[in-house]
Design a protein around this nucleic acid. Structure first.
Lengths: 346, 346
DNA sequence: TTGAAAGCGTTACCAC
DNA sequence: GTGGTAACGCTTTCAA
């Protein structure tokens, strides 16, 4: 049987209440008594019983909050499902998770959501900031108020967030490079289509790929200058049509953001499906379809479920178990998807 | 605030004890009273408080058991880590997990471990049976005794286990086929090296690959007859040496079991590293090294951590929350590894 | 500075 | 069949 606070109290010749105050440095306890209690606790290897703590937490209200932008996307829906699972598990520990979903990208709404959640009394916050530098200051304020913040999916660089949980886009780009290298043993021309030029995730996916190919000495793979399509399929379609005309010996297209449907459509219309290979990101419904019909060779997927499931747990551990995250960057897995290793759509 | 058994008791004009018996069909309660209680509970949407239940479970002893064979392998160590994490989480629900690790494959020791765990009083069992048909009967006995059994990593076909948690090896084979197809756009000769001819996992990996290539109409990929190396690197080395001599235009080697080190060594000795591509299974230390130095193009990895983490949760949900697993086959993810998307070794 | 007691929600046990 | 009571381990509050 595990050691209880009651046993320590008896050994120290004091009451449970005193033991509790001593163990948690709540003050109002004689330093000598406190020292004796701490010593006994250490000797006996006292670990507070999580269920007892949960019971007390439960009778009060212990809230955590999460704010998701682009909630309408497949990726964020997976994130949301992961968060829901953690919420369920946290309920067994006496904590509740409030999730605010925001459609599209809107830093203003995020700031509002933060205020609302604070009003509800959340003790910690998980935010998917998605390249909104205006949030950095707010995150720092929260840190100052003692409200830990975890960023997920995309980071808020320069802020005092507790940690970031998401994919390492640079490594994802390197991974794409390996796939290109394996697909093109004899070299070839590769065109890269990116989303936004000022999006750090998209940029990292490009540079990771380019630099990995360079460092592998893949001179036979010729990288054409990359272009942005602003996440739009119509622009992607137009750009791809043009590239296919001007570069008839194109071997592959690397798409770092949305636009893969426009790309694949243009490739198919040109009768080049299967000959011009396409690599894209994320495992949404269109990409599942494109993988199945062979338009897409590979999709690089982020572990979105994990990105939702981990943050609440990290916040809880930091707040209730005095266990800050092991690392500042908790990178989630980089998943390579083909038509045969698709997980069940959830 | 959530509905409590106490509130139901007051509304029904009975005591908590009666409510408890009624809600859990423990008998010794007037059918009419029981019906009234159940009706009220339903109307109020009563959900038993998990923390209260955990508290009671904790004062008794609630044990689950897990038995792992081949505990010395990297894969099983990952499985073990996953199980340890679940054990930690389950402690917050008042349950304990006992893990028995067995080195190598030994059905006799598994049977002994089952007896030991039963003597300790486990209420459910997770077993990695690894192709030991002699366990089927024992699993059926356990089922008869009301002890649910979950198989993990490998299944016990024909037994009354609650469910299987592990990789779909046939789909993994299909996934390997896609990788081969992508690497060999112009076709080529592929040699398949398997482990044991009577190992269902190895066989499924072979047939999944062969049948996927056939169904894709990949006639330009010529599949040489496969051979077993009995999981031994020395045999694999010898076989590969021979194949490389007799088939100088070999394009790739597909290794479904252990032996990849022998294969890669032979390829390297023949000066064919990078020209003859190799695909292998699992992400152990040697494979990490082989991926890094380019000997291995891809490793197909099973989500071993999950295979350890899920079974205790499934057993707990089935036993304590009356939630049997959603499906008979809970397939874990099929992960494609390259040198750049390796997870941190844990 | 300390102690005593209440309370969280459930289940188990023992009277009746 | 039923109800009352104790118990789990912790935190909190109030009284001393």
């Amino acid at each position: 049987m595990a050691v209880t606070a009651q046993q320590i109290a008896e050994l120290a010749g004091v009451s449970r209440g005193t033991v509790d105050r001593a163990l948690h440095n709540r003050g109002r306890v004689n330093p000598e008594v406190s020292a004796r209690i701490l010593q006994i606790a250490k000797d006996l290897g006292y670990k507070p019983n999580m269920i007892g703590q949960a019971l007390v937490r439960n009778k009060q209200v212990f809230l955590l909050g999460m704010i998701l932008q682009s909630a309408e996307t497949t990726t964020m829906q997976d994130v949301s499902r992961g968060a829901a699972q953690s919420a369920e598990e946290l309920r067994a520990s006496g904590a509740d998770l409030l999730i605010k979903e925001i459609k599209g990208l809107d830093a203003e709404k995020v700031l509002e959501a933060i205020d609302e959640l604070l009003k509800e009394g959340v003790r910690g916050l998980a935010i998917a900031p998605n390249n909104a530098p205006e949030l950095v200051e707010r995150i720092n304020e929260l840190h100052h108020q003692g409200i830990p913040v975890v960023t997920l999916n995309s980071d808020a660089p320069g802020s005092r967030r507790l940690c970031f949980i998401g994919m390492d886009n640079y490594r994802a780009g390197q991974t794409a490079a390996v796939l290109l290298r394996q697909m093109l043993p004899n070299g070839g021309k590769v065109f890269t289509l990116t989303g936004h030029l000022n999006n750090t995730a998209h940029s990292a996916r490009v540079s990771g790929c380019f630099e990995a190919l360079a460092s592998e000495g893949a001179e036979d793979i010729q990288l054409l200058p990359f272009q942005p399509c602003f996440d739009r399929d119509d622009y992607a379609h137009e750009i791809t049509q043009h590239i296919l005309q001007t570069t008839p010996d194109l071997s592959a297209i690397y798409v770092t953001a949305n636009g893969q449907q426009g790309v694949c459509q243009a490739v198919e219309e040109a009768g080049l499906k299967g000959r011009v290979r396409v690599i894209a990101y994320d495992l949404n419904a269109p990409n599942r379809q494109l993988l199945r019909n062979g338009s897409l060779s590979f999709a690089i997927d982020q572990a979105a479920f994990q990105q939702g499931a981990l943050p609440p747990m990290v916040l809880f551990d930091a707040l209730c178990r005095d266990k800050p995250p092991a690392k500042e960057f908790l990178y989630t897995d980089i998943l390579i998807r083909t038509k045969y290793n698709l997980p069940d759509p959830s």
